[in-house]
């Protein structure tokens, strides 16, 4: 009797430790990146909206980090409400790839740099296109990468499409983007102006 209670205590203790460790390692993190300089309020508003937060927490995400861009803190605080998810924001980082690799889901603006950074470390982002930007080149790239099943795309005003993309993301059969040969451009220059 005595032994078994000790055992059960130990068992309980073990369980709680396992639970804590599991909790640390399974905290599902969402990273949102909106670009370095151009403010992208629609994306910040979209990810911080009630529907998005609810959907994300239903999908098991409990933490969100939002990179809102230089001088855009007021936009973040304007839309940020306390709720079911723990949400933190930051202006900018030099190590976006590091931030992305810690996240379980990346939501990104359509900037070529951010999208490729995510794909190169094996993340398949949900890309939100800025309808206010006249530069449709970004959209062209994002759509071609979507056509090749590397990522998912949604418009910033289309919250239904965005929620659908979030729900689709886990089950979607993504293709990995093949890495270019290391130092390929250097090799081409060497071939052209032979380094003899």
């Amino acid at each position: 009797m005595h032994e078994s209670s000790a055992l059960s205590k130990l068992y309980n203790w073990d369980c709680s430790v396992v639970f804590i460790i599991l909790n640390i390692y399974t905290t599902m993190l969402v990273l949102v990146t909106t670009g370095g300089t151009v403010p992208f309020e629609a994306l910040i508003e979209l990810v911080l909206s009630h529907e998005s937060i609810t959907t994300l927490s239903q999908l098991g995400f409990s933490k969100m980090r939002v990179q809102y861009g230089r001088g855009n803190r007021h936009i973040f605080t304007k839309h940020h409400k306390e709720g079911v998810m723990s949400i933190t924001g930051f202006e900018y980082t030099d190590d976006l790839a590091g931030e992305m690799s810690r996240a379980h889901l990346v939501i990104s603006h359509a900037g070529t740099g951010s999208v490729l950074d995510a794909l190169r470390i094996g993340k398949h982002p949900v890309v939100v296109v800025n309808s206010k930007l006249m530069d449709n080149h970004q959209i062209e790239i994002a759509e071609e990468l979507f056509r090749k099943r590397h990522l998912l795309v949604s418009g910033d005003t289309d919250s239904v499409g965005f929620i659908k993309a979030l729900k689709m993301h886990r089950e979607y059969l993504f293709e990995t983007l093949p890495d270019p040969e290391e130092g390929i451009l250097q090799r081409i220059i060497e071939e052209t102006v032979s380094f003899m």
Binding site: T112, D135, H137, I189, E191, T192, V193, S194, F195, M196
Partner: peptide
């Protein structure tokens, strides 16, 4: 390419086209 210039340390010129 048959009579390409041979340089061990070539001079490189790069055009930075602005923006994207």
């Amino acid at each position: 390419f048959l009579y390409r210039p041979k340089h061990s340390n070539p001079k490189l010129m790069v055009m930075m086209g602005s923006g994207g």
